[in-house]
Amino acid sequence: MQDQLINLLIYTVPAVVTGVIAYFFFKEHIKNENNRRHFLMHKDFKKEALPMRLQAYERMTLFLERIVPSKLLIRVAPLSSDKNDYERLLIDSIEQEFEHNLSQQIYLTSDCWSIILAAKNTTIQLILKANMSEKTDNANKLREVILTEMMEKQAPSSTALAYIKEEISAIW
């Protein structure tokens, strides 16, 4: 009986050891294959997503250029002499342009999107502040006050444009 048990162990132990080694080998092999497939899919995704990301940066650059107050005032002329109507027209133009590009945020980093949002809001605040000025009594005077303000300082969107350029250079 003891000889049979020893014979059984002599044949069983190497088989169990071989089975355990094979199990760990195949487990590691499957893990490596999954990692390789994941890497290849990620690489293909990046190759396809890069043009879309660049297009999003382009569109947001165009948005920021369009909301530079001096360019906005040239593009959006007052419809009447009422300063409040013109203020609303300018803000609506900025908001409409922003909403048109809202979906681009999925291709940008959250920091970049936050800076673009801050540039938009700061530009709107600049228009609101200019409208509340005592010097402003009609739409043309509002234009003058905004342009005078922009001569003294940099447009809010220039900071966001610099950040976009920095992010694009990091991609390359």
Score class of each variant (00 low, 15 high):
Asn140Cys: 06
Tyr163Lys: 13
Asn32Tyr: 08
Met1Cys: 13
Leu50Met: 12
Asn140Met: 11
Thr159Leu: 12
Leu50Val: 05
Tyr11Thr: 10
Asn32Gly: 08
Leu89Ile: 07
Leu5Glu: 07
Leu90Met: 12
Leu89His: 12
Leu40Val: 06
Leu62Pro: 06
Asp137Glu: 07
Leu62Trp: 14
Ser70Thr: 08
Gln125Gly: 11
Leu54His: 05
Arg66His: 11
Lys129Ile: 00
Thr12His: 09
Ile127Asp: 10
Leu72Tyr: 01
His42Met: 14
Glu134Trp: 09
Trp172Phe: 13
Ser103Thr: 08
Asn138Arg: 04
Val17Arg: 07
Ile124Phe: 05
Phe24Ala: 02
Phe39Glu: 14
Val68Gly: 01
Asn34Ala: 14
Met151His: 03
Leu89Gln: 15
Pro156Asn: 00
Ala77Lys: 11
Asn138Tyr: 11
Ile146Arg: 00
Glu134His: 13
Met41Thr: 07
Ile168Pro: 04
Ile171Leu: 15
Gln154Asp: 02
Tyr86Gly: 04
Glu144Cys: 04
Asn7Thr: 06
Arg36Lys: 15
Met150His: 00
Phe24Leu: 07
Asn140Lys: 09
Ser70Lys: 06
Leu73Phe: 06
Val20Asp: 04
Arg75Glu: 10
Met151Lys: 03
Arg37Lys: 15
Pro14Asn: 00
Glu87Leu: 01
Ser133Tyr: 00
Glu58Cys: 09
Gln55Val: 03
Cys112Arg: 03
Tyr86Ala: 04
Met1Ser: 14
Leu5Asn: 02
Gln55Thr: 06
Ser70Phe: 06
Pro69Met: 05
Phe25Gln: 02
Asn121Ile: 02
Val76Gly: 02
Ser157Arg: 03
Asp85Thr: 10
Pro156Trp: 01
Phe98Asp: 07
Arg59Ser: 13
Ile116Lys: 00
Ala118Trp: 05
Val76Trp: 09
Arg143Phe: 03
Met151Arg: 03
Glu144Gln: 11
Lys153Gln: 10
Ala49Asp: 11
Glu99His: 14
Val13Asn: 08
Leu108Glu: 13
Arg75Val: 00
Thr159Ile: 14
Ser157Pro: 09
Leu40Glu: 15
Trp113Cys: 06
Lys120Met: 02
Gln4Ile: 02
Val76Ile: 15
Gln55Phe: 09
Tyr86Trp: 11
Ala170Ser: 15
Glu149Tyr: 09
Ile74Lys: 07
Glu149His: 07
Phe39Leu: 12
Gln96Gly: 01
Leu161Met: 12
Pro14Ala: 00
Leu50Ser: 04
Asn35Trp: 11
Gln4Leu: 10
Phe25Tyr: 14
Val20Ser: 05
Val13Glu: 09
Val76Glu: 13
Ala56Leu: 08
Ile116Trp: 05
Leu40Tyr: 10
Glu65Trp: 03
Glu149Val: 05
Leu108Arg: 13
Leu5Gln: 06
Ala162Trp: 05
Ile30Glu: 15
Ser169Val: 12
Leu8His: 10
Ile146Glu: 00
Ala119Ile: 01
Leu54Arg: 07
Lys47Ile: 10
Asn84Arg: 08
Leu89Ala: 09
Ala22His: 02
Asn101Tyr: 02
Lys31Gly: 05
Lys46Arg: 15
Ile127Leu: 10
Pro14Glu: 02
Trp113Met: 10
Tyr86Pro: 11
Phe24Asp: 03
Ile116Asp: 02
Ser93Glu: 03
Ile74Asp: 09
Ala77Gln: 12
Leu40Met: 12
Lys120Asp: 00
